[in-house]
Every structure is written in C-alpha cells, then in structure tokens.
Design a protein around this nucleic acid. Structure first.
Length: 488
RNA sequence: GGCGGCAUAGCCAAGUGGUAAGGCAGCGGUCUGCAAAACCGUUAUUCACCGGUCCGAAUCCGGUUGCCGCCUCCA
C-alpha cells in the first residue's frame, strides 16, 4: 500500500510501526459553530481511510480531537453570556449528530483539549527545561530558532518566513516566528492554574499532548485539512520533536479543499453550506459518493449540479443491487448447489473484483480510480442480468449473490451501499419529491389512472399521463411486477 | 514577494515513460404497446502553449500563459 506523505512530498510504501496495527490522529473541529461540507469532506476522507485500512485487516486506533477552548469559542460565549463549555458542548453534539447522519464511524477516542491541560503543561515545562521555550509575563512561547528542523513539513525556511512576518506592536516574542504554547488569561477568559500563572493553552500544543497521550510519542498517520499544514502541523512537529526527540507521526496526510464557485469554502468567506442543510436535499450517500469520486488531495469545486450528477451515478449502483435482489427472490436455494460452471468468465470477474478494487485503493487511497473499477463491474453484472440465457443457467443465482456480496463489501470499505436499495430509494425519493413540491399521493393517483388506462388498452390516455408525469420529472417504470416510478 | 498545487472530450475526472479508466450529458440501436431501466455502438490521432531528453511522453527536463491554495483563524 502506498500513500502520499506531505512530509516528503511523495508517495511512500505504508509500513505500520506495529505489524497489523495502525494509529491515526486527525485534527478535528474547533467547536463553535455548525459543520459545513468542507468539514464533511475531511471527515469522509478519513472515514474512508480508516474503513479501508480495517477492510484490509488492520486493527485501527483512530483518534479525532475537539478543540474546546479557543478565541472563537470564548468570543461566542461572551457574546451569548454563557460559558465556553456550554458553547463547545453544544457544537460537539451538533458535530456528532452530523457525523452520524453521514455514516461516519465514531473514532476510538475523541479527546477534548480541556481534558488534557495537565499533559500540555508537562510538555511545556519540558520544552522550557530544554531551553526551547521561554516564559514572558505569564505567556510561554516556542523558540523557533532553537529547533533546527522548523519548516520541514510545509517546505518553508525560517529566514523566508521572517522576511514576510508581521511584527505587531507590544509583542512579547523574542522572534516574530515564535508561537504561543500558553497564554496568560485576560478578563472574561477561562483559565487553568499553571507554573506561569492562570492561563490557557495555545492551539498547537493540544494536539502534541493528546497525540502523545493516546497514541504514543510516534504513531503512524496524522491527518487533517491541507490548511493545517502551516502553521498548525508544522508547529506540532516542532513541539513534539523538540520534547520527545522524534517525529510525532510517520505519515502526514492532508485532504484538499472544497471550493464553491472557484473559491475555498470557509467561515471567513461566508460561502459555506452546512451539512444539515445539504442533507435536507440529498441523501448522505450522495454526498459521500460526491466527495469520494475525487482523489482526496484534489480540490473539489462544489455545486448542486455536480451533486445531482453524483446522485445519478450512485443511483446506478443501487439500481444494480435492486436488480440483483429482485432476480434472487425465490431463487436463493440454487446458490447452495454446486452447479456446473456455465458462466466461468463472469464468475472469475466477480471473484477478482475486490482485488481490482484493492489495487486502486492501495495507490494512495485512489477512490476515484476505484470507482472506475466499480462501474466496470456494475456494467458487467448488468449485462449478465440483461442476457436471457444467463437467467436460465444454474449458477446464475450463485454468481449474482457473490456479486452482491462483493459490491457491498467494497462499499463497506468506502462507507457506501450500506443501505438496502429500498431504504435508499425511499429516502432519495422523499427528498426529490420535496424539492419538486409535489406529493406522493398526487403522483400515486396519476400512476393509478395510467394503470387503469393501460388495462383498458387506452394507450393514448396512458401515454398522456406518462408525459404529464415526465413533465414533473417523474419517470415511469413498468415491470413484470407492476408499475414503479422514480424522480429523474 | 516566498512556498506549493493544478491545467486531460460538452461537463466532471483517473492516469508519473509504452501508445487516453470511469461518471454525467448527447446521439444511433436492442428491449418495450409506447416509455423507463438495462445492454450494445458512438462522442479526445489527443492531454494549456513553446522547446528539449528518449526508440517511445499526457506522464521526465527547461520556459511561457492561466487558475487555485498556504504564508492570519480555517477541514
């Protein structure tokens, strides 16, 4: 398995520290507002990473933190006249609700920064003892010039950074590049007792402390959004490596951004769409499919049109599952027999499908390439079902149930196809109908009328109703077992 | 200004040396009372542009243009 390591800017063979086990730390959210689909991408990407690693047989320990003390939380708490804990707990609950809706598996550990203050203080003390950090008036700063490797993750060098650095009035730092490990608390700010007086931790120190506490001084994978490369992860490396003498993680993975109209989606640009709003109009699998159809490091340009296309593609997969299920109804007994191999080639394609999927995913979690494999497979199985002779062959049911099993297995690695086709289409239809502003009853009535006209062989009337429905974006599907309908 | 990334069909997108996956949309056909779904066929002699290396490049090197991100909180 190869994965791209931001640290060395190249794909590297993945070699876990302990055979068969993987420790992953991903930077989670600062809990002060609802999550937007940029957060969703990061969550879905690393959910795919952990799911895929588990699918491959690794025992994964996945840690994702919450930043629950920070300027933005403090500001919001002061504005609302409440505590930072009330704010962070509220948005952690919202976050968890969103993640659950998206089908993101809960991490093994979800540490809060405020639960690890002692660890942070100990870490800061050891940095001071080593002469790498210094205290000034209750603040503590990390001295960048004392750490020779500074800039290795983001590819910057301290001189260049210094040239462009802003020096603010009243700075207590010795060097403009130095960053805060601990901040003396001001009025109306939460505080913890420390050797430097009452204060609160800087942003970067929390991940160094929590990563070390839950995964050890060096773990396998550290992940986050590409915007965290600098300064957050750069500073985290500086702190941890200076304190423990080793890189905190071997592989650094960063997901690309979600853009909207060509610009990065972010709080500051105020151009974000929340997960909650999006899930009102599209099924969570559609959002997941949309995100995973791109390689995780590429930027994505988000639009509702693009999401609609993702829905069309995903529907194709669920339709196949539906078709298999309907083929298999009443025929499963055949699967237990040992029938003659009438479809040897198809059987071998079905059997080798997971391996092809694995090949694509092993190349730096290339889910985009994996979808190519999936759709080739979908077409092949569909063509078998479409073939009348295939239905007569004694091994058809066995092959199709194997195909179904393999497709959902691969889906498990991506977090897709976890619903039954009936559930999926029901939820999809409910959303589409709501968008169209028509009721199920209205459609059902028209479908019944057409059904009557068809029974009377009044084709003109039947076609007229079908056209009316088509005008409403409702497609009719006549099958042996009656008429179904769905939204285009 | 510094650092990094990207540029592939109508749209989206994979592809890091061996002759262009896949999805969406479109067109023709099969199936169907008609449709839909599904299937078959079709849609880039070509990968922003200009040079170079090589038997061979979308893929490597140099240059040009355009877009984006980071350098300040940000997934």
């Amino acid at each position: 398995m190869k994965l791209y390591n931001t640290l060395n800017r190249q794909k590297e063979c993945f070699q876990p520290i302990t055979e068969g086990k993987v420790g992953i730390y991903v930077c989670g959210i600062t809990a002060y507002d609802n999550c937007h689909i940029g957060h969703a991408r990061s969550a879905l990407v690393f959910d795919m990473v952990t799911r895929y690693l588990r699918w491959c047989g690794f025992e994964v320990r996945f840690v994702k933190n919450f930043t629950d003390v920070d300027d933005k939380i403090i500001n919001k708490a002061n504005r609302e006249g409440t505590t930072i804990f009330a704010i962070s707990q509220r948005y952690i609950a919202e976050h968890n609700h969103d993640m659950n809706s998206l089908g993101v598996l809960p991490p093994n550990e979800t540490p809060l920064a405020t639960e690890h203050i002692d660890g942070m203080i100990a870490l800061i003390e050891s940095l001071i003892a080593k002469g790498i950090a210094y205290a000034v008036d209750g603040d503590v700063y990390f001295s960048v010039e004392k750490f020779p490797g500074y800039g290795k993750l983001s590819g910057r060098n301290p001189e260049e950074l210094l040239a462009g650095a802003r020096v603010e009035v009243g700075e207590k730092k010795h060097n403009p590049l130095d960053f805060a490990l601990w901040k003396a608390s001001k009025e109306n700010e939460p505080w913890w007792e420390s050797p430097w007086g009452r204060g609160r931790p800087g942003w970067h120190i929390e991940c160094s402390a929590m990563g070390k506490c839950l995964l050890g001084e060096c773990f396998d994978i550290h992940g986050g959004g590409a915007d965290l490369i600098f300064p957050h992860h750069e500073n985290e490396i500086a702190q941890s490596e200076a304190a423990y003498g080793k890189m905190p993680a071997r592989y650094w993975m960063h997901n690309g951004f979600v853009k909207i109209s060509g610009e990065k989606m972010s709080k500051s640009l105020d151009n974000f769409i929340t997960i909650k709003d999006l899930l009102k109009v599209y099924h969570p699998d559609v959002l997941r499919f949309f995100m995973l159809q791109f390689h995780y490091r590429s930027p994505i340009d988000f639009s509702l049109e693009a999401l609609a296309e993702a829905r069309s593609a995903l529907n194709r997969c669920y339709r196949l599952l539906e078709a298999i299920d309907s083929f298999l109804v009443g025929r499963t007994s055949l699967a237990t027999d040992t029938p003659p191999l009438q479809n040897e080639e198809l059987r071998s394609v079905v059997a080798s499908f997971p391996e092809k999927f694995r090949e694509a995913m092993d190349d730096d979690f290339n889910s985009a390439k994996a979808f190519g494999v999936i759709f080739d497979f979908v077409r092949l199985v569909n063509s078998a079902i479409a073939n009348k002779n295939f239905g007569k062959s004694t091994d058809a049911a066995a092959i199709l149930s194997a195909a179904r099993k393999n497709l959902t297995s691969v889906g498990e690695a991506l977090g897709l196809f976890t619903y039954s086709p009936a559930e999926y289409f029901q939820e999809d239809t409910a959303r589409e109908i709501a968008k169209l502003g028509v009721s199920q009853e209205e459609i059902g009535h028209l479908v019944n009328q057409r059904q009557k006209a068809r029974e009377e062989k009044n084709w003109a009337r039947a076609d007229e109703i079908r056209e009316t429905l088509a005008g409403m974006k409702i497609q009719i599907k006549d099958t042996a077992r009656g008429t179904a309908w769905f939204v285009e």
